[in-house]
Write a protein that binds this DNA or RNA. Structure first.
Lengths: 220, 220
DNA sequence: GTCTATACAGTGATAGAC
DNA sequence: GTCTATCACTGTATAGAC
């Protein structure tokens, strides 16, 4: 972004001279991940990035905006991966429900870099219902999620629209709660189950959800 | 609790003279529910209860302890109702999976008084994984939840212990996420679905979860 | 034991100079 | 764009009255 970056010799990735804004975002992401939203002050973040407190405030205004930018930066690749996988599936013809669910869930769980960081952030936003948190989530995920709802509707044609929306909502609950890794399952199983293992969690989650999506309609 | 309460004429419920501690807890519950954990200061709570700041600190020490007491007060009746319903079910003989799930979920959703208040608190605690939050949840729910895991294991004898734990964990995810009412389902359905309606949510949730619990084991 | 008054270090945010 | 200085406010602690 900074016009100074161009002066670096080519081939030197991870350029040591990043813009102030980038340094702040990197420091913020790491510190928020380590200590949580309230566990770290913007002063600490500014110091870690080597800038002054007011410089941080100049770039982000309020603390929440900083979180929003960090979140959006991580969320976009996830939403894009979801859409790409769905495209591939639909192009390949006969799609199975399990494949669609895996395509939706896997990018969120994998989250190439800094997975845990993003996961807890996502979980926390999912439980707030202030306008600010809603906006962050909507901007990041509404578009791709609606594509999945459409795809699921085609796979489950007998399911009324509202019922499908509920089941999609339930899926989000299992996903967010597992990503949050609150320690509840460890407490109940004396540590036998660990939601931190991506493949284990997914191999458990997908069949569970697929059965739920296919469940017979409740008697009205 | 206060010995002054006895002086009131009988039949006057909602006694106007409560102990300082009770007034603080009532004010704290309402304000936390409205504005969230960080949205309200202990000064505000103390003022709402008509006592001084230091009096609040005398009773609760740190802010977190106040939340813990409020949560425990709401959680205990829920855990008790769960155990009572399970006792009744088991005493009546032939138990259906759907009945067990309903018995577990309904008390959390109903939460006779101040339902929303508690629901959001529960959801938020479910996403924190600090030792403090874990302890609150464990103290409140581990015992009754383990009874349900046992009951479910009897109903689903072919399910390995670990698999059952995962599915129980997924159920908690759908429950907490629905109770949190984050607005995601409204965003995706343009407001057509409202998780705030207890009977609607339960009638959707129970069949979904029952199918998930009954799902065939994934191929190893 | 219960409560008040007061003080303190640290927070997010802002104003205005450079 | 970035700084210094400062603001109102937070959670917490203590000393002492009843």
């Amino acid at each position: 972004m900074s016009e100074l970056d161009g002066a670096l010799e080519p081939g030197s990735e991870a350029a040591p001279a990043r813009s102030v804004r980038e340094r702040l975002i990197m420091a913020g992401e790491q510190l928020f991940a380590e200590h949580g939203w309230n566990g770290v002050s913007i002063r600490t973040i500014a110091a870690a990035a080597g800038v002054s407190l007011a410089a941080l405030n100049y770039h982000f205004g309020v603390k929440e905006h900083m979180l929003a930018e960090i979140f959006a930066a991580r969320a976009r690749p996830i939403a894009e991966a979801r859409v790409r996988r769905l495209d591939e599936l639909e192009a390949s013809g006969g799609v199975m429900l399990e494949q669609v669910l895996d395509a939706f869930l896997r990018p969120a769980f994998s989250a190439d870099v800094g997975g845990r960081i993003f996961a807890r952030l996502r979980a926390r936003l999912g439980t707030e219902h202030e306008a600010f948190s809603r906006r962050i989530l909507s901007d990041a995920f509404d578009e791709s999620s609606k594509r999945y709802v459409t795809a699921l509707a085609r796979l489950l044609p007998e399911l009324p629209e509202a019922e499908l929306a509920w089941r999609f909502h339930f899926m989000l609950g299992t996903m967010v709660y597992t990503m949050a890794d609150s320690g509840r399952i460890q407490a109940l199983t004396n540590g036998a189950c660990d939601p931190g293992e991506v493949e284990t969690a997914l191999s458990r989650l997908v069949p569970f959800l697929a059965a739920g999506f296919r469940a017979a309609l409740p008697p009205t």
